[in-house]
Amino acid sequence: SFNTVDEWLEAIKMGQYKESFANAGFTSFDVVSQMMMEDILRVGVTLAGHQKKILNSIQVMRAQMN
């Protein structure tokens, strides 16, 4: 498990989005775990492969939080 959203993004090789997530207010796992595709688009993730990777990881995160 990760301590910060930045660490999580690095771990899934999506570190290039750290600033975008932070600027959009997605700075805690409570918020990130609620993200939908529209949120991912809003933070500027436009590549389908990256969207899928982030969404898949969020689903895993949700499962671990319950």
Rank of each mutant, 00 (worst) to 15 (best):
N23E: 11
A24V: 04
A22R: 15
I58R: 00
F21P: 01
A24S: 09
L47E: 15
V32S: 01
W8Q: 01
L9R: 01
Q16C: 07
N3E: 14
I40Y: 03
R62E: 09
I58M: 03
L41G: 04
V31A: 14
D6R: 05
K52D: 12
I40C: 05
E10Q: 07
V45G: 01
K53S: 10
A11V: 08
M61R: 04
D39K: 03
F29M: 14
L9G: 00
G44K: 03
R62T: 08
N56E: 15
M65K: 06
V31Y: 07
S20R: 13
A63N: 15
D39S: 04
M61V: 10
E7A: 09
Q16M: 13
L41K: 12
N23I: 11
L9V: 02
G25C: 05
A24E: 10
L47S: 14
F29L: 15
V60F: 11
S33F: 13
E19N: 10
K52Y: 09
K53G: 05
Q59S: 11
D6M: 08
Q51A: 13
N23L: 13
W8M: 02
Q51I: 15
G49A: 15
V31F: 08
N3Q: 14
I40W: 02
Q59H: 10
G44M: 02
F21G: 00
G44H: 03
K13D: 15
V45I: 12
W8S: 00
A63E: 15
A22L: 10
Q34G: 10
N56T: 12
H50V: 03
S20G: 14
G15S: 12
N3D: 12
M14T: 01
K53C: 10
M37V: 11
K13F: 13
K53I: 15
N66Q: 13
S28I: 04
A63I: 10
A48G: 08
Q16N: 08
G44D: 02
S1W: 14
I54Q: 00
A63V: 10
W8H: 01
M35L: 11
Q59Y: 10
I54E: 00
T46R: 10
R62G: 11
A11T: 10
Q59C: 12
F29I: 12
V32T: 03
M36L: 13
Y17W: 04
F2G: 07
G25L: 04
H50E: 06
M36P: 03
M61H: 05
T27G: 07
Q51C: 07
A48Y: 10
K52Q: 15
A24K: 08
V5W: 02
H50F: 03
Q51L: 10
S20H: 13
L47I: 15
M37Q: 10
A63L: 11
K18W: 08
H50L: 03
Q34N: 12
A22T: 08
Y17V: 02
R42H: 10
N56H: 14
L9C: 02
M37G: 05
Q64Y: 06
Y17G: 00
A22I: 09
V60M: 13
G25H: 05
E38Q: 09
R62L: 14
V60K: 14
F29V: 07
S20L: 11
M35Q: 01
G15C: 06
G49F: 11
V45N: 01
L47Q: 14
E19Y: 07
D39V: 02
S57C: 13
G25F: 03
L55K: 04
N23R: 14
T27Q: 07
F2V: 08
E38A: 12
G49M: 12
T46K: 13
E38F: 06
A63K: 13
N23F: 09
K53A: 15
E19I: 09
L47D: 15
Y17F: 04
T4C: 09
K18F: 05
E19D: 12
V32G: 01
G15K: 05
I54M: 06
D39A: 03
T4P: 06
Y17K: 01
V45T: 02
E38V: 11
I54Y: 00
I54H: 00
K18E: 03
T46F: 10
V60N: 09
G15D: 11
A11L: 08
N23C: 07
I58S: 01
Q16F: 07
R42W: 06
N66G: 12
S28W: 04
A63P: 07
E10R: 05
E7V: 06
N66I: 14
V43S: 05
K13V: 07
W8P: 00
G25R: 04
M36V: 15
T46E: 08
M14W: 01
H50M: 04
S28A: 07
M14I: 03
Y17T: 02
M61Y: 05
Q34M: 12
V43N: 01
E19K: 12
M35R: 00
S57A: 15
S57N: 06
I54P: 00
K18S: 11
A11D: 12
T4A: 07
L55F: 15
A22H: 12
Q16T: 06
T4M: 05
E7R: 06
A22E: 07
W8R: 00
Q64P: 04
G25K: 05
A48P: 15
D39E: 05
F29N: 02
V32Q: 00
M35G: 01
F2D: 05
F26L: 08
E38G: 10
I40E: 00
A11C: 11
Q59P: 04
N56I: 11
M35K: 01
D30N: 09
T4S: 13
A11R: 08
F26A: 05
T46L: 12
V31N: 08
G25M: 04
D39Y: 03
A63F: 07
N66K: 12
N3R: 13
V31W: 06
I12A: 03
Q59W: 08
G44E: 03
D30L: 12
V43Y: 02
